[in-house]
Design a protein around this nucleic acid. Structure first.
Lengths: 240, 240
DNA sequence: GCAAAAGTGTTTGTGCTACACCCATGA
DNA sequence: TCATGGGTGTAGCACAAACACTTTTGC
């Protein structure tokens, strides 16, 4: 069946920048999920996962933008999605050669580390790319990724969203490496550990089992959401 | 002529939160521009200015989202628009009873003070509402306004966008009142003046003519964009 | 015992906060 | 001369930055 309107209407999609981590990768723990395009324009190019928003019609109310993003995300990644936020809406008339398409971009943080999949998953051609190698993507996805990275960099400094990229239990060294990777600069270890603990939102959670690696075993922590929520109520400021 | 698509498509609009100031209003200098709806659903309700994005078709590329916002803005306000930024995209299926409509919201800062109009303008039913009186707006515009205010509050603290709400020349007292109005809290005058000057982005610009009012004449300043751009290059941080 | 990774304190300086009075002008 | 609004300085404290060595573990 066809749908008719008096004036032309754009297609509306959501595209999602999915950030994940690989803590074994000491230099590039921060990754982004890319999909290989199998056909049509930009065939064989890497792209951000995404798809059309279900608009609905007389019988069907359709889905909200958040719901659309969530749905796409579940199809693409089988990791636990712990954070999802709308990023920006891209509407340049020329951004999709097939016709006027407006894309509402989201970014998501997922715990890859809690899962095995990570590369050998079932999403046929999905790939966790190191951030600085994700270039020359389809459409305007380079720009979308760049905006997402800037947002992540900015937000991670004043909101405790970084924890969403780590496993449930993590060491301060993990947290430190993550922040260095996201902010792309060296951060003094002692000052960082001090601040992180001073925030009062970390709860001790045992000790790492030495996995046959040299070096001292790390103490583990988890994010204490209870303490965080209370601190926010008291008007606390979380700059790291 | 009708336009046909295989799947249903949403209508896409831009709505704009236009912030302005009335410096003579010592308690509520911060205003927002509202439009009275003359017909259709939400008739007689106050609403944010906005309208449909020109999508384009085979012959016509249409306009970008920024262009749509700019165009709507020019139609509604004859003040100098010095700042325009995309805010958030609202896509709840039920937000417009007439049918699925996705709204890309923007916020704009304008210099009302450089113009006479301000109320007696030609936009028949436009009104500069004090921020805290702008309630019970049409559609989900209460929510849009609330998001815009939060964004303005946050951004004004680390970026020099507040100047876009003041006339070209302004006194420190003006700036102080503006910040108190935007952040909705008292700010110590001496500390504020000190910080404002220490930023090094204010240029002296003469002295206020006493307009028949009591009290000492204020020194005037203007925003020094040159100095600001250079400071940004050096990686300066502009928290106020 | 050596290589690898985790963990730990002190000093110094800068910047934020709190706070109360004098100055210029018009009526 | 009084009412109104503009303008100014200092002292204490808390936080950020800089900086190097010790501890634990596997091999």
């Amino acid at each position: 069946m066809q749908h008719q309107y008096k004036y032309p209407r754009p297609a509306v999609t959501v595209d999602i920048v999915v950030f994940g981590t690989d803590l074994d990768d000491l230099f590039d723990p921060l990754k982004v999920l890319l999909i290989r395009r199998g056909r049509g324009v930009w065939k064989d190019a890497w792209a951000l996962p995404g798809g059309y928003v279900r608009t609905g019609d007389a019988k069907d109310p359709g889905e909200s933008l958040d719901e659309a993003a969530q749905r796409e995300l579940e199809e693409e990644t089988h990791c636990q999605v712990t954070y999802l936020e709308q990023l920006y809406t891209f509407g340049d008339p020329a951004r999709d050669p097939r016709g006027r398409t407006i894309s509402v971009a989201y970014y998501a943080l997922v715990r890859t580390a809690d899962y095995e999949a990570h590369g050998g998953g079932d999403a046929a051609d999905a790939f966790w790319a190191p951030i600085d190698q994700a270039k020359n993507l389809a459409f305007d996805h380079d720009e979308i990724l760049s905006v997402a990275l800037e947002r992540l960099k900015a937000k991670v400094r004043y909101a405790p969203i970084g924890f969403n990229l780590l496993p449930y239990k993590f060491s301060l060294a993990d947290l430190h490496r993550l922040y260095e990777a996201v902010l792309m600069r060296d951060i003094d270890k002692r000052n960082f550990y001090k601040r992180a603990r001073a925030l009062g939102i970390l709860k001790e959670a045992g000790v790492e089992k030495s996995g046959g690696k040299p070096g001292r075993c790390a103490k583990l922590y988890r994010f204490d959401k209870r303490a965080y929520d209370q601190a926010v109520k008291r008007g606390f400021n979380f700059e790291i």
